[in-house]
Amino acid sequence: MIDQSNTLAFYNSNAHSFIEQTINVDMHLLYQPFIDNLPVRPPSQQKILDLGCGSGRDSMHFANLGFNVTAIDNSAALIDLAKAAAQQGMNHQNAIEWHCATFQDIVQKDWQRQFTAIWACASLLHVAYDELPELIDGLLHMLTDDGVFYASFKYGDSERVKDGRFFCDMNEERWEALKQKITAEFKDKTWLTTDRRADRNEEWYNIIIKNKGL
């Protein structure tokens, strides 16, 4: 069993450097397919859950487009710094609702059918593979009937610890096997991208899920 307990400690201890490395990364190649799949209604009538918001970069982007955003992270240090960054970087009146909470905390909240979209960029990769089906099922119940779910993982076929952080990698075979354990019915699309950070050449496995029939 791989120890996952140090991942939170890593983010709390390295919050400043993590935000410096990620807050200005150009994510438009991922934003666009996500936005293209959102329900056809004005942003002001939609709620996006940013799951594992980190620096707050993506929450700010969506809020600046007019979406209502709820930003979640388990690291209190990251949440505090992301809030401060948002106060400086917001050009839209929409406020971001911030929560310091675990993924399990979120699933326990009374948020069923509350969100038109969930954005889980490089966040569920810190969850053990065997725990993902139940967690994804719980998250899908938070979506409206026309809702959209995006997630990304480092491309690979293992679970590992690197620099104190636990990672669950994903590829085609692992995703297909995982899908069989998710009870909700949905359509999905997957594709590979390269890391947008200048010093990285890693590949990422991207997933968009929409409710069956949409």
Results as ranks from 00 to 15, higher is better:
45 Q>H: 11
45 Q>K: 09
45 Q>Y: 06
45 Q>L: 04
46 Q>H: 01
47 K>S: 04
48 I>F: 01
50 D>G: 05
50 D>Y: 04
50 D>F: 03
50 D>R: 10
51 L>Q: 11
51 L>N: 08
52 G>V: 06
53 C>K: 09
53 C>R: 08
54 G>P: 08
54 G>C: 10
54 G>Y: 08
56 G>F: 02
57 R>Q: 09
57 R>W: 13
58 D>S: 08
58 D>Y: 01
58 D>F: 01
59 S>I: 05
60 M>I: 15
60 M>P: 01
60 M>S: 11
61 H>F: 15
61 H>D: 02
62 F>H: 00
63 A>Q: 04
63 A>H: 04
64 N>P: 09
64 N>D: 12
64 N>S: 05
65 L>F: 01
66 G>S: 05
66 G>L: 02
66 G>A: 03
67 F>A: 00
67 F>N: 02
67 F>S: 00
67 F>Q: 01
67 F>V: 01
68 N>E: 08
69 V>R: 05
70 T>S: 05
70 T>H: 06
71 A>I: 04
71 A>M: 08
71 A>P: 04
72 I>K: 06
74 N>S: 15
75 S>W: 03
76 A>Y: 04
77 A>V: 02
77 A>N: 10
78 L>F: 10
82 A>V: 09
83 K>F: 07
84 A>F: 14
86 A>D: 09
86 A>Q: 12
86 A>V: 02
86 A>L: 06
87 Q>W: 04
88 Q>C: 09
89 G>Q: 14
89 G>W: 12
90 M>N: 08
90 M>D: 03
90 M>I: 06
91 N>A: 08
91 N>D: 13
93 Q>K: 12
93 Q>R: 09
94 N>V: 07
95 A>N: 10
